[in-house]
C-alpha cells in the first residue's frame, strides 16, 4: 500500500468513526437541544436551524467534544447558546440600522388575551442576551437547579444567580410590573 493510500484509508476510517460518534451524540441529545433551542428562538424553523448548526459545529470539531454524557450535553448546550449569541448580535446590529418605528412594530396581533400575553412575554425574552435568556429558561421553565445550570454553561453559580436576577428585572422593565417577584 502506498503512503497516499494509507493516508486516505486512515482519513476514511477516522471519518467513519467521527460520523458514528456524531450519530450517537445526535440520538442522545437532539430532543433536549431542540427544546432549549425552541425556547431561545422566535420560531420552530429557527430552532431547527440552531440544532442543525450545533451538530455541524460538532462535526467540524469532533476532537473538542468531551467524553461522557453530561459533558457532551454541556458542550452542546454551550455551542448552542454561543450560536444564539452570534445571531442575536447580528440581529441587534441589523435592527439598530432600521428606523425606530419598524424595529418597534409588534408581531402579528392575536385577538386572544392569552396569545397576546404569550407574544408579550416572548418578545420581552427576545430582548434579553442569549446567555441570560438561557438561564431564565432553564431555571424557570425547565426547573433546573442553579448548580446544574452553572455546570451546563461552564460558569460559577453566583454568575447564574446574577443573570437570573438581572433577567427578571429586565423582563419586569419590559412588561411593566404585571407579576409578583418571587
Amino acid at each position: 500500500m502506498t503512503g497516499q493510500a494509507i493516508t486516505m484509508a486512515a482519513t476514511a476510517g477516522s471519518g467513519q468513526d467521527t460520523a458514528q460518534r456524531l450519530g450517537v451524540l445526535f440520538d442522545a441529545h437532539h430532543q433536549r437541544l431542540y427544546r432549549l433551542a425552541r425556547r431561545l428562538s422566535r420560531s420552530a424553523d429557527e430552532a431547527r436551524d440552531l440544532v442543525q448548526e450545533t451538530f455541524l459545529r460538532a462535526a467540524k470539531a469532533p476532537a473538542s467534544i468531551p467524553d461522557g454524557a453530561s459533558h457532551e450535553e454541556a458542550w452542546l448546550v454551550r455551542v448552542l447558546v454561543n450560536i444564539c449569541r452570534d445571531r442575536w448580535r447580528r440581529r441587534a446590529v441589523h435592527e439598530r440600522s432600521l428606523p425606530k418605528q419598524v424595529a418597534a412594530q409588534p408581531t402579528a396581533p392575536d385577538p386572544e388575551a392569552a396569545a397576546i400575553a404569550r407574544t408579550m412575554i416572548w418578545g420581552a425574552l427576545d430582548a434579553l442576551a442569549p446567555r441570560r435568556r438561557a438561564i431564565l429558561v432553564m431555571y424557570e421553565i425547565e426547573g433546573l437547579a442553579i448548580p446544574a445550570i452553572a455546570s451546563l454553561l461552564g460558569v460559577a453559580p453566583v454568575t447564574v444567580r446574577w443573570h437570573l436576577s438581572r433577567g427578571r428585572r429586565e423582563l419586569a422593565a419590559v412588561l411593566g410590573g404585571t407579576w409578583s417577584r418571587t
Binding site: G15, T18, A19, L22, G23, F26, Q52, A59, P62
Partner: peptide, 12 residues
C-alpha cells in the same frame, strides 16, 4: 438534520 450532520462529519 442527523443526515446533514453525519455527512458533514465524514468529510471533516
Amino acid at each position: 438534520i442527523r443526515n446533514v450532520a453525519v455527512a458533514s462529519a465524514r468529510t471533516a
